[in-house]
Amino acid sequence: MKVVAAVDRSGFVFDARGLSAPRLAALAAAKASGTPLAKAPGGRKAGAREALDFAARHALANPILVDVTADDTSDTLKQALAAGMHLVLANKRPLTAHRKLYDELRALAEERGRRLLHETTVGAGLPIIDTYYKLVESGDRVQKIEGCPSGTLGYLFGELGRGRRFSEALRGAIAKGYPEPDPRDDLCGMDVARKALILGRLLGFPGELEDIEVESLVPEEARGLPLEEFLRRLDEWDEPWRRRIEEARSSRGVLRYRSIVTPRRIRVGLVAVDASSPLASLNGTDNQFIFTTQRYRANPLVITGPGAGPAVTAGGILNDVLKLAST
């Protein structure tokens, strides 16, 4: 297996013989320091379409495109499939676009005899998508997937449960690099909703992202604030959060931000779960997914583990690539 190209918004670096490990390390270091690929040694200035056209002109054996962006890359992915490439996605957006675009992408992959793998779109390196397919391929039927799929929110509620103030807990998460640059992007629940929709579409949910019931944790008065002002005013929401934590604790519960996915309905929001629930045991940035199926009905299948971080995400991507490389 060889890495023959690296592509970013500025351009690409390509070598049909394979980019060596030292060269890949040098490119990664240059990117980390702010140098775009187009300005790297051997780099070419081009858009994604031109980069793919260039790669497709070479006789590459079993080519795989890996998408680790956070953009709507549907057109680029279709171009790659048309050129005979398999797809590995860590990018959730193409899988949560309008249903018509999602179906077109799946249909094109099937038509071209290519595979689209996306394990790391839900749960980073945890085997969530793989578990779903193994259950279904063995004749089981998945009826519901319940879970806490946000490492950032998992960390936040773990800290709140240990008595930290909301402002302290959120600032601590920011210091560790867990949330998006604007933490309201995590608090609004849309990242969890996208993960839930990816699972929902596997189960047959026919709707769109806007059909999901999503509870935002961003206070109404904070939604339009500039980022700096929002962060400066975090202390204002400490008392409301303290009351919510105490209310949950008084009924022997803990707060968790949970998604519930079924073929007909997807809900995302804050709940107080009983201390005996598997969700109550979550720690740090761990994710948890609970599969209720025909076989695992009385005692559902539970998967727990780190759901965020570059190392576990990279491991999940590599696992998908290795699956395709061996076919």
Rank of each mutant, 00 (worst) to 15 (best):
V13Q: 04
W241T: 00
Q288V: 11
L108Q: 13
V68M: 12
V66M: 07
D140E: 04
I245E: 13
R93P: 01
Q294P: 01
G189K: 03
I303D: 05
T69K: 10
E210H: 09
A193Y: 00
A59F: 05
R141I: 02
K45N: 09
D320W: 00
K176V: 08
E208L: 00
A28F: 01
P41M: 08
D191P: 08
K92Y: 00
A107G: 10
E146I: 05
T304Y: 02
P181C: 02
I245F: 07
E111T: 10
F289G: 10
L52S: 09
Y102R: 12
K39V: 09
R258F: 05
A5V: 13
E221K: 07
G113Q: 09
L270C: 14
G315T: 04
L225D: 15
E239S: 14
L101A: 15
S33A: 14
A90I: 00
V312S: 08
N283P: 02
Y155A: 03
R194P: 05
D211T: 07
K144N: 08
L225W: 14
I290D: 13
T131M: 02
G47W: 01
A25H: 12
A59M: 08
S216W: 09
T35V: 11
K2I: 06
K31Q: 10
L170F: 04
F12S: 08
K134R: 14
A83N: 07
L126S: 11
L203F: 04
G204E: 02
L322F: 13
T76S: 09
E239C: 06
D130L: 06
A298C: 09
V3C: 10
Q79Y: 01
A30W: 03
A30T: 08
D286Q: 14
L160S: 06
A51V: 00
R194W: 04
S74N: 09
A28E: 04
